[in-house]
Nucleic acid binder design. Structure first.
Lengths: 146, 146
DNA sequence: GACTAAATCTACCTAATAAGTAGAGATAAA
DNA sequence: TTTATCTCTACTTATTAGGTAGATTTAGTC
């Protein structure tokens, strides 16, 4: 299960992508209200996305958030990794945070690892190839991609 | 990430499948030792798997655990659902525990849901088709299945 | 019938994480 | 200088992960 936080992040990005091909910014309060996301929680999320280079912001009057990275360059995988951390189903299958299982006796022989490697590959195939732009484009497209 | 508990469950099942095509039982202590799983924790796990019909047990001398369900009928997905609960990445995509997102405004239009539906399908394709028997069979088989 | 080897049951513990809340501070425009 | 906005830091509260502990039941053996 992905976290509520990640869901919020993705929804906010989708909204900003819809609003902002033209670079127009949205303020936190409006995003929060339109998407029903707790405002102070959303602040932290957007800040985090900004620090990772997905968003830009301006303070004060006429301020707000807008996409910095183009919507077709932001993958779902990237967002999930920022907000939730590694996507891989096992630490020993993570690219961003590889960690050997404490009690592992030889990864090459690990049946569990072998099976989940397939899962990891399958999920990456979707998450690292699907962008925010894909998500808001023609609805039928996604279903037929593979 | 799957839980440590689920990893333990799968490793124990793999071990029992290896040991027990002939119906021979293994005692908790031995499984615990061979797989480096905390003993008391493993007890709970095996009990749970038994209650769900995957294992059978006998108490007292010459007791132990053995597979009740054949190894080629136990999928990784089944085990994960028993130990960790729903596999789906979103509650609104779970078959075993469907739950509408509190703030959802129309699932059909939800971009996030649409993308993760693809993820769910991809992971189910692996987890619900791969059995314990597959996991211990010829190593090259899994990689080339799809 | 006592002893011993197992599984079973129930309760508890501790640290980390999820999902927020609170409030003061910085900055930009009018 | 006032107001609208983002920014920073700290706190809270409930749940879950990953176990431990100990008493109890059951089945075979001496």
């Amino acid at each position: 299960m992905i976290s509520q936080k990640a869901k919020y992040a993705l929804r906010a990005l989708v909204l900003l992508a819809r609003a902002g091909a033209d670079g127009s910014a949205m303020i936190i309060a409006d995003i929060s209200e339109q998407q029903n996301i707790p405002r102070k929680f959303l602040e932290q999320i957007l800040l985090d996305l900004k620090r990772h280079g997905l968003l830009e912001s301006r303070r004060g009057k006429n301020g707000g958030y807008a996409l910095l990275k183009p919507a077709d360059m932001i993958t779902f995988g990237e967002v999930l990794r920022i907000i939730d951390g590694p996507i891989a189903p096992l630490p020993c299958l993570s690219k961003m945070a590889y960690k050997r299982c404490a009690d592992c006796q030889g990864e090459a022989n690990c049946e569990v690892r072998r099976v989940f490697a397939g899962v990891a590959e399958a999920t990456r195939a979707v998450l690292d190839r699907t962008t925010i732009a894909d998500a808001i484009s023609d609805e039928t497209e996604l279903a037929t991609e593979f």
